[in-house]
Amino acid sequence: MPLVYAGVCSHAPGITGRANQADPTVRDAFYASFDQMRRDIEATKPDALVVIAAEHFANFFMDNMPTFALGMADFYDGPIEDAGWLGIDKFRAPGNRDLSERLIKEVMQTVDVSYAEEWKFDHGIAVPLHFLTPNFDLPIIPANINCQGPPLSPLSRAWAFGEALRRAADALPERIALVGTGGISHWPATPDSGKINEPWDRDFLDRWCRNDRDALLDYDDGTVYTDAGQGGFEIRTFITVSGAAAGATGTVHFYEPIPIFAVGCTVASYDLGATVGVARLI
């Protein structure tokens, strides 16, 4: 079936772990936007949710770092962090090994993706799932883009990964939803934590909503590092969703800097209606 949903959201651990330190009005508006995202995804009646994450050394390290990886298991445990620290109880999320394998085989036609039959979710996936599948009743297929240990993938390859996921999802009989999670500008887990470059974020989100490939790929890691911090490398996850939704236009449902969450909190999605079938024609 054609891809049924493509969106992005934040995943910072403070969103759940430091919830009681945020301004309740802004926090609750953000949570409400996450809840709307859940309802939007549920309305598409997906068979599985692919989560494109930028994990933080839960599974992958510089001894053997995959640029792109996809999970291929029947279940995934999380969160790897202390449950009290993250504010999310330990859980087991369902997977679908068979579906993952078919997806991976198709992605591999154009992108050299690694696979993992074991994968522990860190906050990068656990926080979005806490809001989007709170009952852990939707099979998850985790995807990862190395955004932590340089050298990192060129942005053009992150886009290509999205195109490959779209082509693969469209070719499957199942209904696949896709969510990318990451920060835009942020300096997480450093003394600069809480610093957010809002103009930079809004400019990036404007490019994202226009699905402007040239504009989205017109960044380099040096300037991203300076203007948007280490956390800015995670724009790869957003760009992959853009690649999967090529031709679509997007809407930002929520964007607000919340310093105690250490990120400009974001919920956005693409309207895929106009793009159905396009990916197969390319």
Partner: peptide
Amino acid sequence: LFHLGVNGQILMHFAALHQIEW
């Protein structure tokens, strides 16, 4: 450890292990 260059995504969990508040 931060001065040495340890990635904050690794270091923050080490701090949490030692019950060091945010």
